[in-house]
């Protein structure tokens, strides 16, 4: 698996797109710091960008990389390598290089701004952790979708729909149902609903960490009430790990029964 991983990362580092992604984060980080002139505000603004954009980039990159390297994959399939290792190697290659772009791209401007000497350093680290988790989760889901559809257009559409569902539509349905069922106790419902969506979960984790009551919202307040800040973070964290593992297991399962 590590040889495939090595070649995937090497291939991606040479590609123009990971570089553009890196430059985008460099610019975003710098501009936000300049405009906000405050680390805390910049982190909150970034949180909203990270929870929507990182999943989208992970999805698109994952799906494009899979279909683009199909020929290489076919070459590898005839070699003495375990099937699942080929796909896991490629998946980790994409996820790691995307995460590197995110960490380096946001890290450099914040370091220059004096992140290390401020007390906001842990909040920034949480933001990076959430971003990295979302990259790993959404790249894995998109790899799973790509493995399920031989048709590029179909795979691409399903992946984008999946992103749209989790990043936009899910929240809408969640909010509407909260308003609609106002008169019922909704604690368990909203806790479950947050757990079922990695984007909401990442956001909640960050908001608990940032401890800003104005932004906590209904779900955050419930999380805080039920678990207290530390337990709430731990549970969100564990669920994020489960969220990353499920699509990775899906990749292994799917790759073992697919015909090429």
């Amino acid at each position: 698996m590590f040889k495939i991983l090595k070649y995937s990362i090497f291939d991606l580092l040479r590609s123009r797109w990971s570089f553009i992604y890196l430059v985008f984060y460099l610019l975003l980080g710098s501009v936000l710091l300049l405009l906000n002139s405050n680390l805390s505000n910049a982190i909150i603004t970034l949180l909203n960008v990270v929870t929507v954009l990182v999943p989208l980039i992970g999805t698109i990159f994952g799906i494009m990389y899979y279909y683009d390297s199909k020929e290489f994959t076919e070459l590898l399939l005839a070699q003495p390598i375990k099937r699942s290792n080929i796909f896991l190697g490629q998946y980790f290659g994409v996820a790691i290089s995307l995460s590197l772009s995110l960490i380096i791209g946001l890290g450099i401007p914040f370091l220059f701004y004096g992140l290390v000497i401020s007390e906001k350093v842990f909040e920034f680290i949480s933001l990076i952790i959430v971003g990295t988790f979302l990259t790993f989760i959404f790249t894995a889901i998109s790899f799973f979708i790509a493995l399920s559809f031989d048709n590029k257009i179909k795979g691409f559409s399903v992946a984008i729909l999946m992103w749209l569902l989790l990043a936009v539509i899910y929240d809408g349905i969640f909010l509407i149902s909260l308003v609609y069922f106002e008169q019922y106790p909704l604690d368990v419902f909203s806790l479950t609903a947050v757990m079922l969506n990695p984007i909401d979960l990442g956001r909640t984790l960050m908001l608990l960490k940032l401890d800003i009551s104005a932004l906590l919202g209904y779900t955050g307040a419930i999380f805080k009430k039920f678990f207290g800040t530390n337990l709430g973070s731990t549970i969100s964290f564990i669920v994020l790990i489960i969220w990353s593992l499920i699509p990775i297991l899906g990749i292994v399962w799917k790759s073992n029964k697919k015909d090429f």
Partner: peptide, 10 residues
């Protein structure tokens, strides 16, 4: 193995 169509990463 020699595959039928030589598809290589271009």
């Amino acid at each position: 193995y020699l595959p039928q169509i030589a598809n290589f990463p271009s």
